[in-house]
């Protein structure tokens, strides 16, 4: 699970091009949206594509993302339980 969390942090920083944020700066329980990392709705779409491409998880209802993308911790648990690849 720790490896998955680290992988997620690296992918988020790289794919969302978070220029001023390092992987070490992201705590497992930090809010990804809003006051936390400050991600926005376009980032949410990028994360949905990332789940599909990297882990074979298709989110058919974008509203699901609101709960799944709460933090690295929540995201990693969801991926661990639902991944198909």
């Amino acid at each position: 699970m720790d490896d998955l969390k680290q992988e997620l942090k690296e992918n988020i920083v790289e794919q969302l091009n978070l220029e001023d944020i390092a992987v070490e700066d992201i705590d497992d329980n930090d809010m990804l949206f809003g006051d936390g990392l400050g991600l926005d709705s376009i980032d949410a779409l990028e994360l949905i594509v990332m789940l599909d491409k990297n882990y074979g998880i298709k989110l058919t209802d974008p509203k699901e993302g609101r709960a799944i993308f709460e933090s690295i911790d929540v995201m990693a648990k969801y991926i661990f339980e639902n991944r198909t690849k």
Binding site: Q15, I42, L45, E46, V49, D52, K53
Partner: peptide, 13 residues
């Protein structure tokens, strides 16, 4: 590269 799947919005926008 992705066979017309997994298209992300940022580079399109």
């Amino acid at each position: 590269d992705n066979d017309e799947q997994f298209l992300t919005p940022t580079s399109f926008i």
